[in-house]
């Protein structure tokens, strides 16, 4: 279990982490979410005793990190994939870590096998791809068979197979009763792995909730309708007391009402439908909305009036540029 209490970190004038209080529990995967620059890595560094907090406290099973005599047995951490000397072989990298905690040599061979790096164990880490480096970092985290695992952006740079592997790994580690704390800036990734969510933005705690609650409260489901007889359809829906939103581009969105009900309604009035599809607003969108005010580095989209770069052949659809810019916003969950 990891307990944070009023954890705060200043860098000069800049407040990186502000008064964070939450608990990471064993037996579940806790997702630590926030946009880039939200203070996730700083918080994790403070948890590991690498950075000194300006105020507040972090305790690992009731102890400060520096008080741990055999820390690798308590916490395994993947901070960043390249936190290793590139000139050292994978085996030697793990060996020096193992020796510093009195972990037997055989364990090094075991974890190399677990992460699938046995064939390149004697190769220098410098030549490793990002994914291999990530795997080596994970091997280091697993070395002490710790009861707490901390991963900072573990899926970065991994291929789909690797992502699948790490998801299952995290779930199985949590299933064994370990505490798993994983940071990410991808909500969709967290939705697949985490049981509990801690969301921060600009160093502030924005949410500390279970994943199912978060999904329930944030995933807006609705039905999308398209019809060549839109005016009549609108009338019919109004008569039935169904609120409808015109989403532009000839589509209607209905928040309340099942596709069956709406289809029957249209059929009863002899209306032609070109689309009748249940939709779910993505969690990604919910996350973006939650952190919208605390995103530090905004990308600015070009003004809609600015002509697009010359495109040949011209787009088949005859529509003004930027008109359908939000067409895809509700695609998929």
């Amino acid at each position: 279990m990891i307990e944070l209490e009023g954890l705060t970190k200043h860098y000069g004038e800049k407040l990186a982490v502000n008064n964070l209080t939450f608990t990471v529990r064993p037996g579940i995967v806790t997702g630590f979410l926030g946009p880039n620059g939200a203070g996730k890595s700083t918080t994790m560094r403070m948890m590991l005793g690498l950075d000194n907090p300006s105020a507040g406290d972090v305790r690992i099973d009731g102890k400060h990190y520096a008080q741990l005599k055999d820390p690798l047995r308590y916490i395994g951490a993947l901070l960043d994939a390249k936190a290793m000397h590139g000139g050292r072989s994978a085996y030697n990298h793990l060996l020096c870590l193992a020796q510093s905690n009195g972990i037997p040599r055989t364990r090094v061979v075991e974890v190399l096998d677990t992460v699938g790096l046995t064939p390149v164990a004697r190769k220098k880490a410098k030549g490793f791809s990002l994914g291999m480096g990530q795997r080596l970092g994970i091997a280091g985290a697993l070395l002490g068979d710790p009861r707490i695992l901390m991963f900072d952006e573990p899926v970065n740079g991994l291929d789909p197979e690797g992502i699948h592997w790490i998801r299952n790994l995290m779930k199985s580690l949590a299933g064994q009763g370990r505490t798993v704390f994983v940071s990410s800036h991808l909500m969709s990734e967290m939705a697949l792995t985490a049981d509990h969510l801690v969301v921060i933005g600009q160093g502030h705690l924005l949410a500390d909730t279970s994943m199912s609650d978060f999904i329930q409260q944030n995933s807006r489901s609705y039905v999308r309708l398209r019809s060549p007889q839109q005016e009549r359809l609108l009338d019919v829906l109004h008569e039935a007391g169904i609120t409808v939103v015109e989403a532009g581009n000839g589509t209607l969105e209905v928040d309340s009402g099942s596709p069956e009900q709406l289809g029957d309604l249209a059929a009863a009035h002899h209306l032609v439908l070109h689309e009748l599809s249940p939709q779910q607003a993505s969690l990604e969108e919910a996350f973006m909305q939650l952190t919208a005010e605390s995103v530090e580095y905004h990308a600015h989209t070009d003004e809609p009036g600015v002509p697009p770069p010359v495109r040949l052949p011209p787009p088949p659809q005859q529509q003004g540029w930027g008109e359908g810019w939000d067409r895809t916003r509700n695609k998929g969950a």
Partner: peptide
Amino acid sequence: YAQQSAPNWQGAPGTSYTSPIPVTRT
């Protein structure tokens, strides 16, 4: 969200993992 304090935990608290590797004081 920030105010509510996560009432229903999905994991069973207290079922902490214990490793078979012997502990060494470094």
